[in-house]
Amino acid sequence: MSRLSSELKQVFWVIAAFGALGAVTPFFDDYTQTIITRALVFAIMAMSLDILMGYTGLRSMGHGVYFAFGAYSTAILVTKVKGVGLLTLFGAGLGLSFLVAAFLGFLAIRAVGVYFLMITLSFSMVVWGLAYRWHTVTGGDNGIAGILPPPLFGISLQNPVAFFYFTLGVFLICLGLLYLLVKSPFGKTLVGIREGEARMKMLGYNTWLHKYLAFVISGTFAGISGVLWAMLNRFIAPTDVELVTSVEALLMVALGGPATLVGPAIGAAIVMFLRYWVSTFIERWYLILGATYIITILYAREGILGKVEGLLAWRKAGREAGAAIPRVQKQPEEIRT
């Protein structure tokens, strides 16, 4: 009962936080609005990776792959097909990243640990190469420009505020779906696999299938962020889908807190804020990013949100026990007086 209510409380806080974000953002200047939108787009990517990395314990360096398929499918459709709708774009982006993840899953899921990391890393390199060398389709290193977002129910998404709300909406849907996923028995099984795969196997779970499904779901959601990114920047080039993108997603999850869903979103926000805001004041903003990572690794291994949760739980435990502890401590004082 109390666990359920504390979970509800968490959900309430998260909804309140994003509600506040939605209410406040239109009052910021245009540039800040686009930074927030960028953070939301990458938050979707980081959350999708969290399913794999945080919940299933599979560190992937290949999330740029689905991002790339989402972004390039959108870019090509918008620039080649006249009057293409949002539904088609999302359908194509999601469908493609689903298919690619379903295929790559067969190759990758056999491996664990650093081997899984290496296999997924090679996927990112292959897809970057594809974007760079398949000149006729992807435009090579010149990229594809002029990706204007199509209207949603007649509302133009070319306005930054409208696009922000649209992104926020997509983000919340993703967050909701992923939240349901991790709270479901399926999600619990993933955590079980992370904690002890052999034990789960012994209990009769098909751990390969669970990991495979987690891989495919995670990849599909990453495709969404690619679709949004292409429409937000109105431009896509191989530099957007190179290995750095995959690594950055990994770091966002580590920074925010793996296995927390909202944590990676916070990680994404921090990285985007540093890259687009702080970098305009401090050229060497990578130093700050690096310092942030080092501090996180040294003092908050469970990530920022994980640390905050840990501190809250510790305080709460202290408060609950607090009623008893002072009494115990008072006794010797009474004796002394």
């Binding site: 245009d30 540039y31 686009t34 080039a237 957007d240």
Partner: peptide
């Protein structure tokens, strides 16, 4: 950083801010 997407963002920053 020689990244076109970042150049777009920086152009927006220069224009808007």
């Amino acid at each position: 950083e020689a990244k076109p997407a970042l150049a777009v963002a920086k152009a927006q920053k220069l224009i808007q801010r």
